[in-house]
């Protein structure tokens, strides 16, 4: 988080240098934290090119994510990963599985993007400083209910599991090999950073990898590798634990 914030101030400077249209006003973007004079974060809005405006309908202001539409936070993701995923959606190697409902929506949107627009999208998103999405206490329900719906179309509510951060830490040791100790990611291994990702989104994707909804395309070895790695997560409990651990890394609540 700290690094992101610093990056963000740097960004401010860059934006002014580039003369990008933006306005600045004091604003707290985090909902769960009560407003106080010190907690305010200046958040300049980056103008979204008209060709990308419809992306923000689902992904929210400045691509910060929206759990109610099922669109994840894209701020803070590196350009190479964004490009790879957009291209995957466009080429139907992601979002094509019959049970990937929100993936279908993204695929429909990505299919209409030409290469120049993908470039523009990646450029725009990476110019936006990291922003927190609206957090949700229902993240487990969102992840597992949605994933269950995807698979069985049932409405069964899954119960809320109590996370064990220790178990999460143990499980994460395997993940760290590629994603790094601080979940900072490793472009050489095509492992994206995980800090700042929404919990509901991480949990849902882990379930998708486990179920083979993601990572089933032979032309995407990194993704297949992730599918194999996800098999270490034996249960929803494991998923909740590891996601909670990664999220705690992001909040710098751990030493």
């Amino acid at each position: 988080m700290k690094t992101l914030r610093t990056g963000f101030h740097l960004m401010l400077v860059c934006l002014s240098l580039l003369g990008t249209t933006h306005i600045t006003f004091a604003k707290e973007t985090q909902h769960d934290k009560p407003t106080n004079a010190t907690g305010k974060v200046a958040s300049p809005l980056v103008v979204i090119p008209e060709a990308l405006q419809y992306c923000t309908v689902c992904h929210g202001t400045q691509f910060k994510g929206d759990f109610a539409t099922g669109a994840p936070n894209l701020t803070g993701l590196p350009d190479w990963y964004l490009t790879k995923q957009l291209t995957a959606f466009k080429n139907k190697s992601r979002g094509a599985h019959a049970n990937d409902l929100s993936g279908h929506e993204m695929r429909a949107a990505a299919e209409s993007l030409d290469d120049a627009t993908i470039l523009l999208a990646v450029d725009t998103i990476t110019r936006i400083p990291y922003i927190d999405s609206m957090p949700t206490t229902h993240w487990q329900r969102l992840a597992f209910k949605a994933a269950q719906d995807d698979v069985k179309h049932t409405n069964k509510e899954s119960q809320t599991l109590t996370p064990s951060i220790n178990n999460g830490k143990k499980l994460y040791a395997t993940c760290a090999a590629c994603h790094g100790n601080q979940a900072e990611g490793n472009p050489a291994l095509k492992a994206p950073p995980l800090t700042g990702l929404n919990r509901w989104y991480m949990a849902k994707q882990l379930l998708h990898f486990k179920q083979g909804i993601r990572g089933n395309q032979s032309n995407d070895p990194a993704s297949m590798q992730m599918k194999a790695a996800a098999s270490i997560l034996k249960s929803n409990q494991d998923i909740v634990d590891v996601v909670t651990y990664i999220n705690a890394l992001n909040q710098q609540e751990l030493p």
């Binding site: 604003k27 707290e28 973007t29 407003t35 958040s43 809005l45 923000t56 309908v57 689902c58 992904h59 929210g60 202001t61 400045q62 910060k64 994510g65 929206d66 759990f67 109610a68 539409t69 669109a71 999405s133 609206m134």
Partner: peptide
């Protein structure tokens, strides 16, 4: 559902 993604206080 769209409002969830829009900045607000």
């Amino acid at each position: 559902p769209l409002l969830v993604g829009i900045n607000n206080n």
